[in-house]
Design a protein around this nucleic acid. Structure first.
Length: 678
DNA sequence: CTTAGGG
DNA sequence: CCCTAAG
């Protein structure tokens, strides 16, 4: 696969993907891979802060050895490089939290022998860079201070048999560094993720890698994220069939501290923003639509500014998806707590590096908002005494609570996944913050140490909970004044809770991710307006017509208390309606009733028809009846062979034609009459 | 909100 | 079925 292809892969619809540092003009993939790396390396080097000797920078001899091996032909033939967007999965969410990013899965990251080299270029998320790495970096003199927040490592080898391997290893500092560097970082993050085509390495690999590579990656699995394969069109992020590019938004709390990205980045960002807005608007539109149905008021006044043609919406969604902002990730989950390094691993787990080095620990500035507390002292000094007590945190997955999803039983699995994705995306859209719960109580003071807070190494991890909260604390009218959703934003509530064990959630989310990322960005879960649900005709569709419970449409943000089930596939009255109503073919008896009513009332009084024949059938609106009549007429006119679905008795169809002809004539007469009158 | 139509 | 423009 050549680079161009890669590009396309990553950004199928973008001629020139934002942030793509690699020129598309490259034809030769081998070269391209090389160039790509070289480019990265050069840029990094150029932008300063990076050791001219990448190899040394990161790891020691082990590395060297690896390098050597990496050049072996055998390896070389192995697999071609492919740039692939990172997969998105629960872990990514964690990344939101942890702000790391890239998860480049390190496929082949290590086989069991020393010789096994990373066959791929791996861009490791800050989160996977362990203390040892940092230490090394620090020792290299590049990031000796505690400001080093991020480490970047790129390792690769040229696969071309004829050429020698190529390997780039580098690091850069995120915070406290020059703008350039940061930009670079962001660029890289946004653009690079190269892994071998076949994915992750087996479980066995990681230990090796860890051992050898300073525990760069906790587990291969960890880097493995379910991707959005094949659902590009639905993704909100630039995904491709190969994987998903993970994009996270800046955590507002921290973004301010960072320097601004380059212009390009800015552009992208703004683009993204607008995209969000667009999406939001579309949502709004839908929302209003629904609301209108429910409440019947405020429709006119709002629909104009909020509504968009559906088709356009779709289009916009796509656009916005493509535009979705690439964000720099911040290093988060590395708690500054004494020697507590949390690494996000494959299953979205945060694990601790086996070896914490004092330096490393210190170098990780405060990170996790909830966990930070660790007074690593500004100096970055860690008292030796402290280094013995480690708080070990293992976050298997992040839970997204209170995701109410109502979906017809007849809906496809795919649609369910998409729906889940919508919800998840909605949450992620605005970014998240981390909240922490200890024994169910929220820990608010970020400045206290873990110890002071009551979190000690012998703590039962279960006592600790993490939550994901909306990033915005305040609704910001300026951003989207007309956004009806801003209301809910006012009070941030935990959207998710990270609990040690929530595989179910993880799965759910993964599924969602797998499928596609629809639009919904920028909206919140609670925005799911009512949707017609699957409820059988017998079940009143309260939300649709009479019941002015529009408020319900807005799924209230749940109590932070209980995360609850993530996906309730059942009809919880308040559900969403961003989805198409379930298809409910008319039965013959319904057709019969319709025909009879129309025969009597004519074809221009659908409301009356509704009242007369379907008054008690909530899911049949007069528009539905009108549409049905339309199709009936059409059906009656085509040959029986062309008809589909449950066959309608010819007798009825005949009546349809008769009635249609009659009423058409009547209408014509009426119109002529009125014309004559005038 | 209803109608009428296009998609 | 959806979405709108008009009324």
């Amino acid at each position: 696969m050549d680079l161009v292809a890669m590009r396309c892969l990553a950004y199928p619809e973008l001629p020139d993907p934002p942030g793509c540092i690699f020129p598309s003009k490259t034809d030769d993939h081998q070269l391209g891979s090389f160039d790509l790396l070289a480019t990265v390396a050069d840029e990094l080097l150029m932008e300063g802060g990076i050791s001219p000797n990448p190899v040394d920078t990161f790891s020691g001899e082990e590395h060297q050895a690896v390098v050597e091996d990496s050049i072996t032909e055998e390896r070389a033939k192995d697999k071609p490089f492919i740039v692939k967007p990172c997969d998105l999965d629960i872990c990514d969410q964690s990344s939101l939290l942890t702000e790391q990013v890239l998860e480049a899965p390190v496929s082949n990251f290590g086989s069991n022998e020393l010789t096994s080299l990373p066959n791929d270029v791996c861009l490791l998320p800050a989160s996977v860079i362990t203390s040892e790495c940092l230490q090394k970096v620090g020792s290299a003199g590049q990031f000796a201070d505690d400001e080093c927040k991020l480490g970047l490592r790129i390792i690769t080898q040229k696969l071309d048999v004829q050429s020698s391997g190529c390997r780039v290893s580098t690091g850069c500092r995120l915070e406290g560094e020059s703008e350039k560097q940061i930009k670079m970082e962001s660029k890289i993050f946004r653009n690079l993720s190269i892994s071998s085509r076949d994915g992750m390495c087996g479980p066995g690999c990681r230990e090796t890698w860890e051992r050898k590579e300073s525990a760069l990656v906790r587990s291969s699995n960890s880097v493995k994220f379910p991707s959005c394969r094949g659902h590009m069109s639905c993704c909100s992020f630039p995904f491709n069939s190969e994987g998903v590019k993970i994009v996270t938004r800046d955590n507002d709390e921290n973004s301010s501290r960072r320097t601004q990205p380059r212009n390009a980045n800015k552009a992208i960002r703004s683009l993204a923003r607008s995209g969000d807005r667009r999406i939001r608007k579309s949502l709004v539109s839908k929302y209003w639509k629904t609301t209108t149905n429910l409440q019947g008021e405020g429709y006119n006044s709002n629909k104009k500014r909020c509504s968009f043609p559906n088709t356009k919406n779709r289009y916009k969604r796509q656009i916005s998806q493509r535009d979705y902002p690439f964000k720099k990730r911040k290093l988060y989950y590395c708690s500054s707590a004494p020697n507590t390094d949390v690494i996000v691993s494959s299953d979205g787990i945060c694990s601790l590096p086996e070896h914490d080095s004092k330096a490393a620990a210190c170098s990780y500035g405060s990170a996790l908002p909830g966990v930070n507390a660790a007074p690593t002292s500004a100096t970055g000094e860690c008292s030796p005494s402290q280094s013995n007590s480690h708080v070990k945190l293992k976050i298997k997955s992040f839970r997204v609570p209170e995701l109410f999803i109502e979906i017809p039983e007849t809906a496809t699995v795919g649609s369910l996944k998409r729906t889940v994705m919508k919800a998840v995306t909605a949450i992620l859209g605005d970014g998240l913050r981390v909240g922490m719960l200890l024994q169910g109580k929220k820990i608010r003071d970020d400045n206290r140490t873990l110890l002071q807070t009551g979190i000690s190494h012998d703590n039962k991890s279960d006592a600790l909970g993490f939550t994901l909260e909306p990033n915005h604390t305040q609704a910001s009218p300026t951003v989207c004044p007309e956004d009806p959703f801003q209301l809910p934003r006012d009070n941030p509530q935990p959207l998710a809770r990270i609990s040690p064990i929530s595989n179910a959630v993880q799965d759910a989310v993964k599924q969602g991710n797998l499928d596609a990322l629809p639009d919904l960005m920028g909206s919140n879960i609670r925005n799911f307006p009512e949707s017609d649900n699957d409820s059988a005709p017998s079940t009143p569709d309260m939300s649709l017509e009479k019941t002015p419970t529009g408020s319900r449409a807005l799924v209230a943000v749940p109590e932070m208390r209980e995360p609850l089930a993530i996906v309730s596939t059942h009809k919880s009255k308040r559900s969403e309606s961003l989805q198409r109503r379930m298809r409910r073919p008319f039965t013959v008896s319904e057709v019969e009733a319709l025909v009879q009513a129309v025969e009597k009332l004519g074809t221009g009084r659908w409301r009356d028809v509704k009242l007369k024949a379907f008054d008690n059938v909530k899911h049949r609106t007069y528009v539905d009846l009108k549409d049905k009549w339309k199709t009936l007429v059409h059906t009656a006119r085509i040959s029986p062979q062309q008809r589909r679905g449950e066959p309608v008795p010819q007798e009825l169809l005949d009546r349809v034609l008769t009635a249609h002809a009659y009423w058409s004539e009547q209408q014509t007469k009426y119109q002529l009459g009125s014309q004559a009158a005038t």
